[in-house]
Amino acid sequence: MNPSFQPALGAAQAAAGAQHYPAGALYVVATPIGNLADITLRALHLLGLVDAIACEDTRHTASLLQAYGLHRPLLALHQHNEAEAAVGVVERLQRGERIAYVSDAGTPGISDPGARLCAAVQAAGLRAIPLPGASSVTTLLSVAGLASTDSDAAFEFTGFLPTKGAARAQALRRLAQQPHACVLLEAPHRIQQLAKDLAELGERQVTLGRELTKQFEQLVTLRCDKLAGWLAADPVHGKGEFALVLHPLARAAASEDGPDAEALRVLKLLLAELPLKGAARLAAEITGASKNALYQAGLALKPAAD
Rank of each mutant, 00 (worst) to 15 (best):
P108Q: 11
P108I: 04
G109P: 10
G109S: 10
I110G: 11
S111K: 12
S111E: 03
S111I: 04
S111D: 05
D112R: 12
D112N: 11
D112L: 12
P113K: 11
G114A: 07
G114Q: 11
A115D: 15
A115P: 01
A115C: 13
R116G: 14
R116K: 15
L117E: 04
L117T: 00
L117W: 03
L117S: 02
C118N: 01
C118Y: 01
A119C: 11
A120N: 09
A120C: 10
A120H: 05
V121G: 09
V121R: 06
V121H: 05
A123K: 06
A123M: 00
A123P: 01
A124Q: 00
A124L: 06
G125W: 08
G125A: 10
L126K: 03
R127Q: 15
R127N: 08
A128F: 07
A128P: 03
A128S: 14
I129N: 01
P130V: 10
P130K: 09
L131P: 02
L131I: 15
P132N: 10
P132D: 11
G133D: 11
A134D: 12
A134I: 00
A134L: 07
S135R: 06
S136Q: 06
S136C: 14
S136G: 15
S136T: 08
V137E: 12
V137A: 14
V137W: 13
T138P: 13
T139R: 15
T139S: 15
L140G: 10
L140R: 06
L141Q: 07
L141F: 02
L141V: 06
L141R: 03
L141H: 07
S142Q: 11
S142H: 04
V143W: 05
A144P: 04
L146C: 03
L146V: 07
L146Y: 01
L146K: 05
L146W: 03
S148F: 03
S148D: 08
S148P: 03
T149P: 01
D150M: 06
D150G: 14
S151C: 01
S151A: 13
S151R: 14
S151P: 00
S151D: 13
D152L: 10
D152R: 12
A153T: 07
A153G: 04
A153Q: 15
A153P: 07
F155S: 02
F155D: 04
E156A: 14
E156L: 13
E156T: 12
E156Y: 10
E156V: 06
F157P: 07
F157I: 15
F157Y: 14
T158I: 14
T158L: 09
G159C: 07
G159P: 02
F160E: 05
F160Q: 13
L161H: 04
L161P: 08
L161V: 08
L161N: 07
L161G: 06
L161S: 11
P162Y: 12
P162L: 09
